[in-house]
Computed example of a mutant assay.
Amino acid sequence: MKADPAVQRRLLELADIDAELARVDHRRRTLPELDEIAAAEQAVRTKRDAQVATDTALADLDREVKRQEKEIDAVRAREDRDRALLADGSVSAKQLTDLEHELETLKRRQSTLEDELLDIMERREAVELDSQHAGVELAKAEEALADAARRRDDALADLDTTQARRDAERGGLVGEFPEPLLGLYERVRRNKGIGAALLRARRCGACRIELDRSAISRISGTAADEVVTCEECGAIMVRTAESGL
């Protein structure tokens, strides 16, 4: 295949653009913020689970408090009724004894219920503190996630700008190459990653392998407009005064 040496040298500009586009793609896939976000999302899930657990425990204790208070109110109502009967004076001696016994029982029951309520309230206070702490930790985790997402978005925006610019440059450049040369370049680039590179100091700029004497001799005897490729990696080797031929 033949191509004007000046056109071949332009392949180096195309290769530089493609190299940067490849770096942009690699950078987009390996942004450190992506790992940060994954870790932050896991932290948010963990903190949210903790928040839900404490909120559920708090709700359970609130229901227990209401149940306990309702039972205490029932005991007090029963006590008030019995005292009203005693004050009425219309009960028999046996009923009087039974009422007095029941009042003692109600008194002990109320004391027990109030002690239990106090214990529940103390537990509720501790759980409420845990819930508040869980809320603070969740807010911190969510802020860390939002911060990582903002930094990722900023980095992606920069990469998108670079890609758009380089895509535009590439679009304007590829039309300068004859189809056979461009086709060869694209095939090699798809298979090997680098389509063309400078032959510098007898070394292929794509695979960095130094050519042996026979290869150098062969290339030296090749016309300047002949397209030569690396026997090792297949990349188009662009010859200039730096090639050492």
Rank of each mutant, 00 (worst) to 15 (best):
E100M: 04
E100V: 04
H101V: 08
H101Y: 07
E102A: 13
L103T: 01
L103M: 02
T105S: 14
T105I: 04
K107V: 01
R109S: 10
R109K: 11
R109H: 06
T112P: 14
T112C: 08
E114I: 13
D115Q: 15
E116W: 08
L117C: 09
D119V: 14
D119W: 04
M121C: 06
M121D: 13
M121T: 09
M121E: 12
E122N: 02
E122C: 05
R123H: 10
R124S: 05
A126W: 13
L129G: 10
L129K: 10
L129I: 11
L129C: 09
D130R: 13
Q132H: 03
A134Q: 09
G135C: 04
G135D: 00
V136P: 00
A139W: 02
A139S: 11
K140L: 12
E143W: 09
A144R: 09
L145I: 15
L145S: 03
A148G: 01
D153P: 06
D153T: 11
A155P: 02
A155G: 12
L156T: 04
L156R: 07
A157N: 06
D158G: 04
D158E: 14
L159W: 03
D160P: 13
D160E: 12
T162G: 15
T162Y: 07
T162N: 04
R165M: 14
R165L: 13
R166I: 05
R166K: 12
D167V: 10
A168E: 04
A168I: 05
E169L: 07
E169H: 07
R170C: 03
R170V: 08
G171L: 14
G171E: 07
G172E: 08
G172Q: 04
V174F: 04
E176D: 15
E176V: 06
E176I: 08
F177E: 00
F177P: 00
F177R: 05
P178V: 14
E179V: 05
E179K: 09
L181Q: 07
L184T: 09
Y185T: 02
E186R: 00
R187S: 03
V188Y: 01
K192N: 13
I194C: 01
G195C: 02
A196G: 00
L199D: 07
A201W: 11
R202K: 08
C204A: 12
C204H: 04
C204S: 02
A206I: 14
R208Q: 11
I209W: 05
E210N: 08
E210K: 11
E210V: 09
L211R: 10
L211T: 12
D212M: 04
R213F: 10
S214F: 13
S214R: 11
S214W: 07
A215D: 14
S217P: 03
S220P: 15
S220H: 07
S220L: 12
G221L: 05
G221I: 15
T222K: 03
T222F: 01
A223S: 01
D225H: 08
V227M: 02
V227Q: 00
